[in-house]
Nucleic acid binder design. Sequence first.
DNA 1: TTGTAGGCGTTATCAT
DNA 2: ATGATAACGCCTACAA
Lengths: 355, 355
Amino acid sequence: MFDKSSGKAAGSASPEGVKRVFRQPSIKDIARLARVSHPTVSRALQNSPLVNPRTAEKIRKIAAESGYRASAVARGLVTRRTRTIGLVVTTVADPFTSEVVSGIEQTANDHGYSVFLADSNADPERERKVVQAFAERRVDGIIVTSSRVGALYLPMLSEMMVPIVLVNDQHPGAFVHSVMICNQEGSRAVAKHLVELGHRRIAYLGDKFGYQSDTERYAGYREALDAAGIPLYPELVVHGDGKPEAAMQAMDTLLALKSPPTAVCCYNDMSALGAMRSIYMHGLRVPEDISVAGFDDLFVASYTQPPLTTVRQPMRRMGKLAMENLLKLMSGEESEVKIKVEAELIVRESTARVK
Amino acid sequence: MFDKSSGKAAGSASPEGVKRVFRQPSIKDIARLARVSHPTVSRALQNSPLVNPRTAEKIRKIAAESGYRASAVARGLVTRRTRTIGLVVTTVADPFTSEVVSGIEQTANDHGYSVFLADSNADPERERKVVQAFAERRVDGIIVTSSRVGALYLPMLSEMMVPIVLVNDQHPGAFVHSVMICNQEGSRAVAKHLVELGHRRIAYLGDKFGYQSDTERYAGYREALDAAGIPLYPELVVHGDGKPEAAMQAMDTLLALKSPPTAVCCYNDMSALGAMRSIYMHGLRVPEDISVAGFDDLFVASYTQPPLTTVRQPMRRMGKLAMENLLKLMSGEESEVKIKVEAELIVRESTARVK
DNA sequence: TTGTAGGCGTTATCAT
DNA sequence: ATGATAACGCCTACAA
């Protein structure tokens, strides 16, 4: 071995052979260069009024030249606030979720917060790890979107003692703060739209049982039918899982009925995609033979053939609202508890007057 | 004001009125309870062999009971490694990107890393802020996906002295490590497929000029046509921007030609969506009148009407590869420089023999 | 207006 | 096998 000169010079490889050799400049390095004490540097960099403008200027110049970047980790240690939030999603690889995430991220960023993204993949073990990680990272708050999991890890979350906001939660009552779409009103609107087109055999192609949003959307559907004096045909209520594949199968069973529906209210756009696929594979046409409606207004809803009638959720805005809500909570303000955003019926070409 | 008792008790409201009152237990609290020194606690919790199994057990029990969570921020300060990576995307609200992000996140998580997600929104100012934030957060590495920005902030990135991996970079040569799809081969495969179906007037509906992936896909298209002895019809080469809207317009111009194409190679699936929409709006059918092919094999490609012939990019796996590559780099290993993953032709029903 | 001293919660380096 | 002690980089009294 060669001799290692000069005391505690950085540069020695770590056990794992890490290459990062040179320390980033610290507040003390700047202080030395500027011939002041490091608290003065700290103050100058925070634009504190109690530092001479001239020296402040000099310090900032030196800091900029030396490529100084304040360490958020050191700051977080002393201030006990990391300006960091944790975001738990079932999976980002979902068009609904990713829009919400985008809205959250932009808003967080605008307010100087960074976001830890964690994909639970609906795996309980993973969820445990994710929450644990967020706790150790000392996030200042947490947002959970469309949690479909058995409320298993929710107690862990509340133990963390940080504010939590839920987006489209499937576990009513488990937490206080949430942003939700008006499921029932939205669903009632599409169903009513179909009724007004003269349909009477209107199917409901739902999500799995027990999810709040499915329950609410089903309620809206029933409401519209009741209002029109249409009886409930139990065989017209089927269930998928919110994804196209399962919806195809559900639609297959509807089409196998002696008297199939003339219209279908789908739980969401993804289900509608599957429903339409099934309809085409049976040699039928949308909307000539069957009307199809979705829920969400995903980007793709405008580009299906025919373009999909659906209920719009302002996903990005819901993300923004959730983050703004969380910001308030993190700064100690009390804020709205349950935020409800309105759903908007978007009529396109997948629904038509009954033959 | 009431008197504030007992020295440094937590609980005083911060200037912003923060509510978080009670400190989380620290290693010292555990030490006190276990009647050992805090380094011993540290060792026990790391399963260090140099601590008496009995005391270690006791310590772990106490830690668990008191809800102790090690502070990653304190640890990061001393170890100079945060086990954190920064992930820059143009926007997560894009089906390609979100799949890649998902792959990255899962892999990171499996290895004990947390990921900071930042959505640059293709805004240079935002990009600056994002990179700055990552620098301050002391991330151990960075992944950038599908950067379409003027390499403006890339120098900032390299200044950070942390490993960087690019996914589907549009700036050839700017960085060393990357994961890319075989654009040219994939594109050649679809174009060849169309040639074999008897098409000779095959259009290319590309992305904006200057992006590497567009250039490469165009090259693949040309290659297939050249191989078949088909001349280049310049009017059959048009450009969108990778999204449906612009692709619709590009397709409109193709259809306005005296002699329109009988097939279209689209830059990506999103463009194919727009192209198909345009075709339908002209009263034509896919694939009877015009064959359409995409690139990416997004989830939705299976559910268009008709299902889309396309080139599959293993998006999730590309994310995984990028992260694995980054993990190696972060631990000081040298690793592969340019990883190329194979593209796979997926023939569905949007392409057919020419009439 | 500036400097000195101390501490945030860990890990690392010595002793013992 | 364990304990003292000193960092890590920053912020916040308090003193000057």
